[in-house]
Design a protein around this nucleic acid. Structure first.
Length: 590
DNA sequence: GAACAACGCACC
DNA sequence: AAACGGTGCGTTGTTC
């Protein structure tokens, strides 16, 4: 039904007693931090959908207070298809749901570690359950010119915008009601699936579910606060990199006699006569590594061109995504990675170029674009060698652990025990965690496969417990089709050929769940203070700390370290800080 | 025109 | 038989 101001009170009275409700919003666009607004809120209970038509009258603004008081303030489980988006839109109406936030995509991930790609949309989740979504509004927009293509500075492509707010009620209402219906039904199905997944004598998923649900609120707050960029710096940097890019393009054309196109078609003729490496698909390879082995004046130029373009893309992306206050509200996606890690998007803040000391001499380095707001500084916390230490704690590799507890660096300890160089040990250690074989190790070290095998054998002899952990993990995945991670996360490997990935999933996923737990605890600690979490980068948290909150920093470090209860070797956390930017950091507390 | 595959490259 | 784990994004070229 369509709720009017006249029927508002009675509708709220009906909904108030429901322990679970699905909520969906219809909005003017997809960018809550760039002025888009909700024009409808749809609530579904067990058997009805209620369309609150905010567009109907400007009287809805005051009525929102009643919506908060008589609906959202009541503690419930709230199902959302895309919680952080809807929470941001609701917040624009002053609406804040109380109770438990159940994001469909987050729960879908917990139920199935194999899901990959664009399978977390409501459409896709519905389709997997034999339900169908309604394409009416999109089709209407296409037919009636309610689609805008927005060109983006520094980009070849355009962004498509659907104006759902122009769609007639007769089309949008049934569509919106169906979405809310699907959200409720899928939410219920997921909860039922978790009940079924609880069996005696196996690790419970419950702690994981509790943590991820809380985390949705933690991450929503983090995204809403966002992180500030220096817009003027970004504009200058975009121009600077753009100029270097254009100059390098001219240089290429001068030498090659044709314009640069970043494709094998364009590049291959320029390296005629040389033996070219091949990509996995058998095409000639022109990545930086391959180019460095080719001869000719354009090889270096191609790498330069790509470097300048890459840098320029970062700054253009920041300018595109920053809101009117120069704040970027990037997405931190709880559900996207199969191991349980976060991913980041729009823009991705987990792959910002890192600059070494020499590069930091330059004016324009990517991380310098990110600055603390007035009265704040950045405190950066990162787990030391998180994945490797977690593996050591799982395996209990005594010899290595003793050396490391004695203060030795992990790779040096490996090198000492195995009689190899630190550099070799470091490469081998990474590959161990990634499941790399002797062939890859040989390629990385520039030695023969036989020599690589010898190095591996030496490491295995020095720390047989690590090898045993990996073999066991892989064997279990092969036999049973899945393995349990720390905190009860289940990693499925239906294809036996993928079993070699199981140890990595357990380690990477374990680290993810440690930092996810720490994030909720840090968020709780910071509640009521002026400070806030702004970034999470796999083994690192960045806190935008108010100058008056410095005393909290040691406590945050402690929370992170204690999030994982170790058996053999604890996780330790390093601290950096900066009053300037993400680039210019100083070790330790301020 | 849009969707898709492939590549290249940034991070942990 | 043999295996380098997990991401997001921009571009190019092909295909429907």
């Amino acid at each position: 039904m369509i709720v009017t101001l006249q029927t508002l009170a009675s509708t709220l009275a009906t909904l108030r007693s429901s322990p679970r409700l699905a909520v969906d919003t219809e909005t003017t666009g997809l960018r809550p931090y760039h002025g888009d607004m909700p024009f409808a809120i749809i609530v579904a209970d067990w058997d009805h959908e209620y369309y609150f038509n905010l567009a109907e009258s400007c009287a809805w603004r005051p009525a929102a207070a009643q919506l908060q008081e008589d609906l959202f303030s009541h503690e419930k489980t709230w199902y959302f298809a895309n919680a952080k988006f809807d929470l941001a839109m609701l917040a624009k109406m002053g609406l804040v749901p109380r109770g438990t936030i159940h994001d469909l995509a987050v729960h879908e991930r917990l139920l199935d570690s194999t899901l990959f790609g664009q399978v977390f949309s409501l459409d896709a989740m519905a389709e997997r359950r034999g339900k169908k979504k309604d394409g009416g509004p999109k089709a209407w927009c296409e037919k009636n010119g309610a689609v805008t293509r927005v060109p983006v500075e520094g980009k070849q492509t355009t962004v498509k915008q659907y104006h759902f707010d122009r769609v007639p009620l007769g089309i949008i209402v049934p569509y919106a009601k169906l979405d809310a219906r699907l959200t409720f039904d899928i939410g219920r199905e997921q909860e039922a699936a978790f009940v079924l997944a609880e069996l005696p004598d196996i690790p419970s998923l419950a702690p994981l579910v509790v943590n991820e649900r809380q985390l949705t609120e933690t991450v929503y707050a983090m995204e809403a606060v966002g992180v500030k960029v220096d817009l003027a710096f970004c504009r200058r940097a975009a121009v600077h990199e753009g100029q270097r890019y254009a100059e390098a393009l001219r240089g290429f054309e001068l030498i090659a006699g044709k314009p640069f196109v970043n494709s094998a078609n364009c590049l291959a003729p320029l390296f005629a006569g040389q033996t070219l490496r091949l990509t996995p698909k058998g095409h000639p390879c022109f990545d930086a590594e391959a180019l460095s082995t080719y001869t000719g004046p354009v090889a270096k130029l191609v790498t330069d061109i790509r470097g300048f373009k890459g840098a320029s893309d970062y700054y253009h992306g920041f300018l595109y995504h920053a809101d009117a206050d120069g704040v970027i509200h990037a997405g931190f996606n709880q559900h996207q990675a199969r191991t349980g890690r976060f991913s980041s998007s729009a823009p991705n803040l987990q792959n910002l170029t890192k600059s070494d000391e020499e590069e930091l001499e330059d004016e324009f380095v990517v991380r310098r674009a990110f600055v603390p707001r007035p009265g704040y500084f950045f405190a950066m916390f990162d787990f030391h060698q998180m994945e490797y230490r977690l593996m050591l704690d799982y395996s209990g590799a005594r010899g290595l652990i003793d050396k490391i507890l004695g203060g030795l660096d992990i790779h040096q300890a490996t090198a000492d025990l195995a009689g190899i160089t630190r550099s070799q040990a470091k490469t081998a250690n990474f590959l161990t965690i990634y499941g790399g074989g002797d062939g890859v190790l040989a390629a990385k070290l520039g030695v023969t496969v036989g020599e690589a095998a010898r190095i591996r054998a030496a490491i295995k002899a020095a720390a047989p417990e690590n090898a045993a952990f990996i073999d066991e993990c892989e064997a279990v995945a092969r036999r049973r089709g899945f393995v349990y991670g720390w905190f009860g996360r289940r990693h499925y490997f239906p294809d036996q050929n993928d079993s070699y990935r199981a140890p990595n999933a357990v380690i990477q996923g374990g680290c993810a769940d440690v930092i996810k737990l720490a994030m909720n605890r840090v968020a709780r600690l910071l509640r009521g203070t002026m400070s806030r979490m702004v970034l999470t980068i796999h083994d690192e948290l960045v806190i935008e700390t108010h100058e008056g909150d410095s005393r909290l920093l040691a406590e945050i470090k402690g929370l992170m370290e204690e999030a994982y209860l170790h058996r053999h070797i604890p996780l330790t956390v390093g601290v950096d800080h900066s009053f300037k930017s993400l680039a210019d950091k100083t070790e330790g507390y301020p």
